[in-house]
């Protein structure tokens, strides 16, 4: 483990209406703005967009594909932009500090057009 080390990226298939319908049931978040185009349009949007927490779940997979979950002591994210239908997010992480057995991992979720949808930080216990 070294500062500057990059985690293996995590990416998923394109987000479709059925992804969002399935995630609504699985996550319990039935906010209609993520599922009903008419509701989205009534708020001035072209179409529905993905739940922020769907992308946070991808970030969680990035981390727990890399280290065991019990090593992760905190995870903080900011949602920077909405994720439209048909987007294909990719999560990346970089170790930016290593102090007293704790690694700071800076996190990003990026769409194919370069839009950053999430920035965040995780603290991860590491073995010396």
């Amino acid at each position: 483990m070294k500062v500057g080390m990059k985690l293996p990226p995590f990416s998923v298939e394109r987000i479709t209406n059925s992804t969002l319908a399935e995630f609504a049931v699985a996550s319990g978040d039935h906010n209609p703005i993520h599922q009903d185009r008419e509701v989205a349009r009534s708020a001035g949007l072209d179409d529905v967009f993905a739940h922020g927490m769907l992308s946070m779940a991808y970030v969680a997979s990035l981390l727990t594909n890399w280290t065991r979950q019990e090593n992760i002591t905190s995870l903080n994210v900011r949602f920077l932009a909405i994720t439209p239908l048909n987007a294909r997010p990719t999560c990346t992480g970089t170790v930016t500090a290593l102090t007293d057995g704790v690694a700071t991992v800076e996190l990003l979720v990026t769409l194919e057009d370069g839009t950053r949808t999430i920035s965040g930080t995780a603290l991860v216990r590491v073995e010396d």
């Binding site: 922020g52 979950q69 002591t73 905190s74 995870l75 903080n76 994210v77 900011r78 949602f79």
Partner: peptide, 9 residues
């Protein structure tokens, strides 16, 4: 809109 989300474990 969801702006930020943090967890401590």
């Amino acid at each position: 809109l969801h702006g930020e989300q943090s967890f401590q474990y």
